[in-house]
Design a protein around this nucleic acid. Sequence first.
DNA 1: ATGGACAAGTAAAACGTTTAACTAAACGAT
DNA 2: ATCGTTTAGTTAAACGTTTTACTTGTCCAT
Lengths: 345, 345
Amino acid sequence: MANMKDVARLAGVSVATVSNVISGRKYVSPALKERVETVMKEMRYRPSKIARSLKIQRSFLVGLLVPDITNPYFAEIARGVESVALKNDYQMFLCNSDGNHAREEITLESFHGHGVDGVINVAPRMEEGLLAHFSEGMPMVIVDRHLSIVNPLIDVIYTNNFKGSAELAAHFLSTGHNRFACIAGPQDVPTAVRRLQGFCNQLTIAGIPASRNHIFSAEFKYEDGFRVMKEILKLKPRPTAVFAGNDMMAWGAMEAVLEEKVRVPEEISIAGFDNVFFSNLVVPSLTTVHQPKFESGQLAMELLLEKIQGKIEGKPCKTRRRELDSQLIVRDSTRSIQTMKEGTA
Amino acid sequence: MANMKDVARLAGVSVATVSNVISGRKYVSPALKERVETVMKEMRYRPSKIARSLKIQRSFLVGLLVPDITNPYFAEIARGVESVALKNDYQMFLCNSDGNHAREEITLESFHGHGVDGVINVAPRMEEGLLAHFSEGMPMVIVDRHLSIVNPLIDVIYTNNFKGSAELAAHFLSTGHNRFACIAGPQDVPTAVRRLQGFCNQLTIAGIPASRNHIFSAEFKYEDGFRVMKEILKLKPRPTAVFAGNDMMAWGAMEAVLEEKVRVPEEISIAGFDNVFFSNLVVPSLTTVHQPKFESGQLAMELLLEKIQGKIEGKPCKTRRRELDSQLIVRDSTRSIQTMKEGTA
DNA sequence: ATGGACAAGTAAAACGTTTAACTAAACGAT
DNA sequence: ATCGTTTAGTTAAACGTTTTACTTGTCCAT
């Protein structure tokens, strides 16, 4: 593969001139410029971003770490990130962690090694101390996690999970439900905790005794929703409404219910969280809490760009928190107690 | 950030020794080794893969280019690729092209610049000449596309699309269907063409006149399936069976049908292609043709590793084609003409 | 004593860019 | 004529590794 030196030799100029022709940072006479450009074409010269990165200490690469690219929720975020990355001549580097601590660490270490200019870390499960450690020399924005310690190197974006699930609970209550079950996400991830808290808190306010609620915890996956729902169906008396920690789980729960020949929403109401694209497409369509996924990806990348800029200019950059608003979306998988009874009759 | 020189200075050794401690390629006395290692820890030294890549002309990076990461079909492939990449200390670099020629080119160019050791190109739409051009100096394996020209730098993996859709057609025929519509994928992508051919060919063999079939072509997306199906429903007489080019389209088609209060499968049968995870979960579950997605991702990465190895060792490497077998999966969205009529009655 | 073989570590040249510092030429203003 | 100033281009030193070729020292056989 041809390099700058080769081009320079063949064009009879110095490497500096070739570099200037490419970057346009300095004036090069039209004649020389032309000559250099044709030589580059002839030799099929391709500049090495590796050498460039090494020299300028910048890669125009950002890392994106998500737990599971197969979950449309994360895929949407990834597209949001990518869209603004590309507009700013950045390339995105996507990896899965599988929600696994060790793989999160390995991946971040690898990102650092490859000299990414920054990282977007979605729903990380590693402990906060480690996050701080990795953010050294590598600006980071964290999506979907509440951080307790303020770290000026890290920005944070999250949806108002508490409010979202509280609204959902309020909706259940106002439509007459009074026996609940929750299929919460893993309780070591703050997002899952907040959703559960928001839901339960609302019930407490309404005076529903905690003993009336059945709370389960599992991974944010279809299979787990399915499995836990089977347990819930054995409860007596059976809950009238089920809140799943995300849409994948809610979907799994719905399948479990159907498999047991119980009808949704006539005999039991189910709601999720996320509003991924298929939630509107399954039958019955899923009541859920909308999160702006694409937008939060975009916002994450925008914040990261500013943080990178700040680092380059040596400016002090404060930590920023952005709370995005969630929105209750009522669809066909939930129904008021009254009409449920009608359906059952 | 500390570099090797800093470590060497503080440990009172040469950079070469530090390098040897890290790589273990040469013997270093235990005393020195220990000293160097503690200094590295103290300084939080992190080796630069950029400098390493530049020097050894290898990045341990592979590029993965897919049209749409939001489509679970590609997400599954990505996981397959990633799983064997990680096992071999490779990192994966994922990008979307949106099925857009220009973005495919930009991305491949960028991959090259970042010095990836190879590329996996899924369902590329650019012309073959360009593929050949990009594969120079960057081993490539192409998934989901039939190539007409043999190029020793490129390996090819595809599913037997022709056979898969032929089997599907045979299934329709054997269950009594005789008026068909196809919602084919874009006819500039060979995979879409082959699927359509396999289907139509089988009908021709069965003596169904071509005039009896209605063929439409659109993007491989939910919205397109939806839109085209609306058109199909206006046809008189209405087709009894519809073949969609992939599951996303089939799903869209199913929604369009339901919206018009037509029942699946009682009044019309619908089938897709891919067998993505949700095909089994929608109601009615989707008859489709299974493709080994995760496995083809794995295979792609394995072939790529061999090709990379071959390039390093300067060995001549022939092009390889791997045809994976597809498999008809009959579920609830299709039904025989007889039972359909019963359902309608 | 001398020389050769081996062991343990070092010096320095790459890899392909960018860029600060320099040179040489051309041009006006004095 | 002389002295800046500007212009157009070059030289060479980085960036942080890897690795070849070299140095030094030790040990052993002669």
